[in-house]
Simulated assay, not measured.
Amino acid sequence: MMGHLVPPECDVPLEVLKFNVDHTLPLYLDGDSMVTWWANIMATGKYPGLNHVVKGGLSIFHGPMVESSFSAMGDIITQKSTKMSMATFNAIQTTKYVLKSRCQTAIQMFKRENVKLSTVDKALCKNIRTAGTKDKTRRKQALLKKKERQEEFGCQPITSAEQSRKIAVEKDRQAHVRHRAAQKRKKALELLVQAKKAKK
């Protein structure tokens, strides 16, 4: 049944039985990283077939409920928003769901009867003002965590074609600057030599 996931020489059912009675496995506590825990097990090399199955399972998309997200994703995620974070997507999806369930627009939902005297939702105002800063902080923390995990597991960061092109262009620019500087030094030396010869 899992022949397409594991090498043919592996007996996964037998490995599962051995895994269930293995007292040498590292202790897993609430809050621990599942990836790190399994990485420690994989490092032992005890369960090669089971490790293949686990790798496949951990690579499955497990963000918001997939079935209910596909219809909304087409309206939210476009070519200009492909790098949207999961937290932002969840917030947009929740807002769209609430507005749709109440049959209201955003203006209708947050409309104040009296602009001057109606109570202001201070929490809402605070969230609006700090949303951008929180998102930037969250992205920085996620990037740092990603780099730490890459260093921990010895992974090399994957660069996109655009990033590779920018790196190549920057290298060419630096090489051009060095070449021009070398030419200027050479010309200055030639002028200096000519000046010394003229004095003689």
Rank of each mutant, 00 (worst) to 15 (best):
G3A: 01
L5K: 09
P7D: 11
V12N: 03
N20W: 08
V21Q: 12
V21Y: 09
D22I: 10
T24G: 00
T24L: 02
P26A: 11
P26L: 04
L27M: 01
L29I: 01
G31I: 10
M34R: 03
M34A: 05
T36I: 03
T36C: 03
W37E: 00
A39G: 04
N40I: 03
M42D: 00
A43L: 06
Y47I: 04
H52D: 12
V53L: 15
V54G: 07
V54C: 08
G56W: 14
G57V: 04
L58Q: 06
M65R: 05
V66G: 13
V66K: 12
S68H: 15
S69N: 01
S71F: 06
A72Y: 09
G74R: 08
D75P: 05
D75I: 06
I77A: 11
T78W: 00
Q79P: 08
Q79E: 14
A87E: 13
A87L: 11
A91I: 12
Q93G: 05
T95I: 02
S101Q: 02
C103S: 12
Q104L: 14
Q104C: 13
A106Y: 07
I107L: 14
I107V: 14
Q108M: 00
M109G: 04
M109K: 12
V115D: 11
D121S: 03
A123Y: 11
A131C: 11
G132A: 10
T133D: 15
K134S: 09
D135T: 11
D135V: 00
T137V: 04
T137L: 07
L143I: 14
K145R: 01
K146F: 02
K146I: 00
E148S: 14
E151T: 11
F153Y: 03
Q156Y: 04
I158A: 14
A161T: 09
Q163N: 08
S164D: 06
K166N: 15
E170Q: 15
R178Y: 02
H179W: 14
R180H: 07
R180Y: 00
A181W: 00
A182G: 00
K184M: 08
K184P: 03
R185Q: 05
K187G: 02
K187V: 01
L189K: 08
E190F: 15
L192K: 14
V193C: 11
K197E: 10
K199Q: 12
K199I: 06
